[in-house]
Structures are given as structure tokens and as C-alpha cells.
């Protein structure tokens, strides 16, 4: 991604994701999509389109995988800033 990160945003672990699509379906801003590439386990992982995340956490709570989704909320301050 170019330039400083815009908070909030959503990060998806491309290896832990099983491509179930629950987050994609649930995201109110429709900023997630199933990618065309396969991960090493043979799933098409979900990924963030790059902008428009509301930081609502819907994807996080909809996802069955413990660490597949991380959502950085609006008030997140990166370390070292």
C-alpha cells in the first residue's frame, strides 16, 4: 500500500483464512472480496480492497478462524508514533 495507512483498516492473514466468505458477505461497506489466488492450503482467501473500511468489526466477529482477521480501529496508534 502506498503512503501512510488510513485507519481504520482490515488485514487478512492469507494463510489462515479458509475462504469461507462469511466476512465478505457480512461487511457492511463491501470492502472485502475473495481473491483469485490460492493460498498454500488451497483456499481462495478473502482480502481487503484497500479502502473504505468502517472499523465496525463485523468481519472479525463473523470469521471462524481465530487469527485470520485483524481490524485496526480508527483510534489505533501504530507503535513508535
Amino acid at each position: 500500500m502506498d503512503g501512510p495507512r488510513k485507519y481504520p483498516f482490515c488485514e487478512i492473514d492469507q494463510e489462515e483464512c479458509k475462504g469461507c466468505g462469511l466476512c465478505v458477505n457480512a461487511c457492511p461497506a463491501k470492502v472485502l472480496e475473495i481473491s483469485s489466488h490460492l493460498n498454500s492450503r488451497g483456499f481462495h482467501p478473502s482480502s481487503y480492497k484497500g479502502s473504505g473500511c468502517l472499523g465496525c468489526g463485523t468481519c472479525f466477529y463473523s470469521c471462524p478462524e481465530p487469527g485470520a482477521i485483524t481490524v485496526y480501529l480508527k483510534d489505533y496508534v501504530p507503535e513508535g508514533v
Partner: peptide, 15 residues
Amino acid sequence: RTHYCPGCGHGILHK
């Protein structure tokens, strides 16, 4: 990663 199938409700409840 978990042993659960993709989209399994167990995972959400675990979380």
C-alpha cells in the same frame, strides 16, 4: 490453524 471446516460455527463461538 484450526481443524474446523471453513465456515463452521464452532470457530466463531470459540473466538
